[in-house]
Simulated assay, not measured.
Amino acid sequence: MNIQEARTSDAPMIASVLQEAAQWLAANGRALWSGAEIGPERVLQDTSGGLFHIAREGEHMVGVMKFELEDAHFWPEALPGTSAYVHKLAIRRAWAKKGVSTELLSYARSRARRLGRAHLRLDCVADRQGLRNLYEGFGFVLHSVVQIGSSSYARYELPTAT
C-alpha cells in the first residue's frame, strides 16, 4: 500500500471516498459529515492546502484522511506546535476491515513524529463505539469527552515516540 500527500488532481476522488463513507454511515442511521464538509469545493480547498493524504493499492484510492497541525475547534487548550490531528478518516467500503485505517494511522503517527509533534490526536462522536474501538486498538488513549454544541465528542491522543 502506498500512502502519500494528495495532489490537487486527487480532490474529486477524495470527495468520492468521503461521500461513499458518509452515505454508508447515513444508511446505517449514523449520519456524520455535512455535504458542505465533504463537497468538491471544500475538498479541493483542503487538498490544495496539503491537508489530505491518500492510501492507494495499485491504481485504486482505497482510503483518505485529513492531517492537520492545529485544531482549535476540538482541542482549544492544546499548545501550538505540540500535536498533529487526524480528521476525515474514510475507507472505501470494498476495502473495509483490510488494514487501511491502521496503515493511514501509522503514517500519520510517523509524519507527526518527523514534524516534531509529541502527540497525534483525533476526535469522534462519543457514541461511535466501533470507531472508538478502532482507535483504542491502535493504541490511542481516551483524553476526554467534551460537549460541543449538542454533540459529545471523545478526544483521543497517542504519543508519537515509539
Results as ranks from 00 to 15, higher is better:
V17E: 15
V17K: 12
L18Y: 03
L18N: 05
L18P: 08
L18E: 04
E20H: 00
E20S: 05
E20D: 13
E20V: 00
A21Q: 03
Q23F: 04
Q23K: 12
W24D: 12
L25W: 02
L25Q: 13
A26C: 06
A26K: 13
A26I: 00
A27P: 03
A27L: 01
N28A: 08
G29H: 03
G29N: 13
G29D: 09
R30Y: 01
A31T: 06
A31C: 05
A31Q: 11
L32K: 06
L32S: 12
L32Y: 12
L32C: 08
L32V: 02
W33T: 03
S34N: 10
S34T: 14
S34A: 11
G35W: 02
G35S: 05
G35H: 08
A36V: 00
A36T: 08
E37Q: 13
E37I: 00
E37N: 05
E37F: 08
I38N: 09
I38H: 06
G39P: 07
G39E: 10
P40K: 09
E41R: 13
R42A: 12
R42F: 00
R42N: 14
L44Q: 14
L44M: 12
L44W: 03
Q45A: 10
Q45L: 08
Q45F: 05
Q45W: 06
D46Y: 02
D46F: 01
D46E: 11
T47C: 09
T47Q: 13
T47R: 06
T47V: 04
S48C: 13
S48H: 06
S48V: 03
S48P: 02
G49R: 07
G50L: 05
L51M: 15
L51G: 09
F52N: 10
F52Q: 15
F52W: 11
H53A: 03
I54E: 08
I54C: 14
A55N: 08
R56M: 12
E57T: 07
E57A: 11
G58N: 11
G58M: 10
E59S: 10
E59G: 07
E59C: 06
H60L: 09
H60V: 13
H60G: 02
M61T: 02
M61D: 07
V62N: 15
V62F: 04
V64K: 14
V64G: 11
V64T: 12
K66N: 12
K66E: 11
F67M: 10
F67A: 11
E68H: 04
E68G: 15
E68Q: 13
L69R: 12
E70I: 00
E70Q: 14
E70F: 02
E70W: 01
D71C: 01
D71V: 02
D71F: 03
H73T: 04
H73C: 02
F74R: 08
F74T: 04
W75Q: 07
W75R: 11
W75H: 13
W75V: 04
P76M: 01
P76Q: 09
P76H: 12
E77D: 11
A78D: 15
L79S: 15
L79T: 15
L79Q: 15
L79P: 13
L79N: 14
L79R: 15
L79A: 15
P80S: 11
P80R: 07
G81Q: 07
G81C: 04
G81A: 06
S83A: 15
A84K: 05
A84M: 05
Y85P: 11
Y85D: 08
Y85E: 03
V86L: 12
V86I: 15
